[in-house]
């Protein structure tokens, strides 16, 4: 299903996407294909959700203040509580996980005050305490993730 070109684009262009007037043309030249080939392959990857986008990736807390938050919610109330939380535009990930703390979500607020107000609002709406887990240090040097695309 994935062609050689798809795989090259997935693995070799997670970083150093060209900052030039015709970046797709530059990639095409490097890979020995045409600009149209690169654009259609990327469009396919995008349309099939193999990539979520091509573009700049911003480290946490460079714009806005983010935090991971965990809640312990009885199973029968989980969906209702999760829906209330997800309704906030500041919430961009919300996962159920197998643990006593079974609801995990990430919020990004404009600043610390906005974050505090948001957490207060979420605690009031859901009546469950939020365990706040802000990032204290980021140990990850994001150079992309080496994908094993064989046997797919």
């Amino acid at each position: 299903m994935l062609t050689t070109l798809h795989k090259q684009l997935l693995n070799d262009y997670q970083q150093n996407f060209p900052l030039s007037p015709r970046p797709y043309q530059d990639i095409a030249e490097a890979l020995g294909v045409t600009e149209a080939d690169v654009l259609s392959a990327l469009t396919e990857l995008n349309d099939n959700n193999f990539i979520s986008r091509i573009g700049p990736v911003i480290p946490p807390n460079h714009i806005g203040v983010s935090a991971l938050i965990a809640m312990a919610v009885p199973e029968q109330h989980l969906q209702t509580v999760a829906d209330k939380i997800s309704a906030h535009p500041e919430v961009n990930h919300n996962y159920e996980r197998e643990h006593r703390f079974n609801l995990w979500f990430v919020v990004i607020a404009a600043d610390a005050e906005h974050l505090d107000a948001l957490i207060d609002a979420i605690e009031q709406e859901t009546s469950y305490p939020a365990m706040l887990l802000p990032m204290l240090d980021d140990f990850f040097i994001d150079l992309g993730f080496k994908l094993d695309l064989n046997n797919d």
């Binding site: 997935l10 193999f50 990539i51 911003i58 460079h62």
Partner: peptide
Amino acid sequence: MLRLAAMKNSGSIRRIGAVPNHYKLG
């Protein structure tokens, strides 16, 4: 382009490239 390059150099942009969907890729 110049501003993107400057933000990349200063670390405000971590990388520019494809953002793979791990789950969808197996």
